[in-house]
Design a protein around this nucleic acid. Structure first.
Length: 509
RNA sequence: GAAGGCGUAGCUCAGUCGGCAGAGCAACGGACUUUUAAUCCGUAGGUCGUGGGUUCGAAUCCCACCGCCUUCACCA
């Protein structure tokens, strides 16, 4: 092969990184560690602001703070820096007269994005800005990356998702949203804790991916030479624990569904499932109201919240709307009435050949009703045939004691009076409804689960809540990827991933 | 999986009919002791997502591919 001088893709030289590396060397020459060391005794910037004096001219407390340089301004032998930590921002004022020659020289090696620590008294500037009048600067970490534009910030969606740390640093509200997520989850745990529910952890790797209708991710255990599935639900293990005498139990964890990605779906998401022995779906409605209202109160004064321009009033009790009534109202069909169901389905272009009437009804329900449920509202009493894990109504075996909670057209929770009849469960696992593929069906035979039911599971209510969606609704967030730090993205760049998972992404050798 | 939109300097964005690649911020050099999107003078910075094609000439037109977004399908 002829060697062509330009055939090698030459490494792109980032002139900003080059410049900053020059400053790293400059710091090393000054005897300063560019990457910093333990830094004790600093206080949060929000606290600094509280400690500031009321008027300019007054001397405030001597403080030590640490943060990232967000902006800077020069005015001759005065330098202003705005630094940011997890609690806020504060201005630094460095005056040539207040610092040593070495410290003044150090300023020339500082850049936007660097992490520094400072010591000095709190004072107000002439314009009244709370400032730390710096006496000493400690370099805590040099940044080699050029930050986004100081006024417009970072806006490119792809960059914000791939480099969420940029989003976190430079876009106000991102950290706050995730802090609310944390408070919401803590609130859910507390609501359940005060009601004596036991939090447990069950396997993520399942031999049978049951408990919901979804395509699973498939993986493989090498030494056991067995296929495994990532869990699509928490249900069947938690019910086994109820058989074992744990009467109030819940698990909050990640589940995985190999489906499409959009504003309300990410392949891995966080779900909570809760089971209460000797309850039913009605008791789960009350529990749902308590969990959600407590969560709202954990982040808001009011039970009424704004969401994407709409107002959601969470004040309980929420309406209980019957599935059949809603279908009648919005689709003009009656459950089990072939004529009206197929007529409406044809009108909407939904295939009717070889489809169980209840499956058809449910497709009509999803097409005509769900978007209109602004809620919060419980849809109750589903057709039993599409609920293979649910107890039937005593007076009407065609109806299952199931509810789904809808808010803003989004399904937020799903709950049953749990089926505990092992023979009926076994039978339902074997029944595939016409029009549903194996993948689409919740009915997936799990002999071990049936064996557990034979030991005796108490009558119970069970409830599942989509945590990410709950956080979306409570934080005025339109897409699920903004309540998840690192949503799934395709790999970056042209180089395809190799079999051992290595890629061209400048990994350390 | 389908359709539509987007991809230009580190960032935010212009770029007209196909005719020399632009601005602001950031960077670099300089002035300035109360600034806060500081100001002023100067300098440098580009694989126009990638690869083809049409053309005398392509950021611009055509084709394919990659990535992100939106809507739809699947799903919670």
């Amino acid at each position: 092969m002829t060697a062509e001088p330009d055939s090698q893709p030459h490494q792109k030289i980032d002139r900003f990184e080059k410049e900053r590396l020059r400053k790293v060397d400059q710091l090393i020459e000054m005897g300063i560690d560019p990457w910093g060391q333990r830094f004790d005794g600093h206080i949060p910037i929000s606290r600094c602001r509280e400690l500031a004096p009321a008027e300019s001219g007054q001397d405030g407390e001597q403080v030590r703070a640490a943060g990232r340089i967000m902006r800077r301004r020069k005015a001759g032998k005065l330098r202003f820096y705005d630094i940011q930590d997890a609690t806020g921002q504060i201005q630094l004022l460095v005056s040539r007269g207040d610092v040593s020659d070495e410290q003044w020289a150090l300023l020339s090696a500082l850049d936007l994005g660097d992490l520094i620590g400072v010591d000095g008294p709190l004072r107000l500037t002439d314009t009244g800005e709370i400032s730390i009048f710096v006496e000493k600067i400690t370099v805590l970490c040099k940044s080699l990356a050029q930050p986004p534009e100081k006024f417009h910030g970072a806006k490119d969606t792809e960059m914000l998702l791939r480099q969420r740390y940029i989003d976190l640093i430079y876009n106000p509200g991102v950290v706050e949203r995730m802090q609310k997520r944390s408070r919401i989850i803590a609130s859910v745990r507390q609501t359940l804790g005060t009601r004596d529910f036991l939090e447990v952890e069950t396997p993520v790797l399942h031999a049978i991916a049951g408990g919901a209708a979804a395509r699973p991710f498939i993986t493989h255990h090498n030494t056991r030479a067995m296929p495994l599935f990532l869990r699509i639900a928490l249900e069947l293990h938690l019910k086994r624990l109820m058989v074992g005498g744990i009467e109030r139990v819940f698990e909050l964890g990640r589940v995985f569904r190999n489906e499409g990605i959009d504003a309300t779906h990410n392949p891995e998401f966080t779900m909570i499932e809760i089971y209460q022995a000797y309850g039913d779906y009605a008791s789960m409605m009350e529990l749902t109201e308590a969990i959600v209202c407590d969560a709202v109160k954990s982040i808001s004064e009011s039970l009424s919240l704004q969401w994407c321009g709409s107002e959601i009033d969470f004040t309980p009790p929420w309406p209980r709307l019957k599935y059949a009534d809603l279908l009648q109202e919005h689709a003009g069909c009656q459950l089990g009435d072939e004529a009206s169901l197929t007529a409406k389905a044809r009108e909407l272009g939904i295939p009717t050949e070889n489809v169980h009437l209840d499956v058809l009804a449910n497709e009509l329900f999803e097409a005509t009703v769900e978007d209109k449920l602004m809620g919060p509202a419980f849809v109750i009493d589903y057709p039993a045939s599409i609920c293979p894990l649910t107890k039937r109504k005593t007076d009407n075996p065609a109806i299952a004691e199931r509810f789904e909670l809808f808010v803003q057209g989004m399904e937020l929770a799903n709950a049953y009076t749990e089926l505990n009849d092992p023979k009926l469960q076994e039978q339902l696992f074997q029944t595939q409804l016409a029009g549903l593929s194996d993948e689409d069906s919740m009915a997936r035979m799990d002999h071990d689960f049936v064996r557990a039911l034979k030991v005796g599971m108490p009558p119970a209510g069970g409830l599942g809540i989509g945590i990410d969606r709950l956080v979306m609704l409570l934080t005025d967030t339109r897409t699920i990827r903004d309540v998840i730090f690192f949503p799934l993205l395709r790999p970056e760049g042209q180089a395809p991933a190799t079999a051992d998972g290595a890629n061209s992404e400048g990994k350390p050798q």
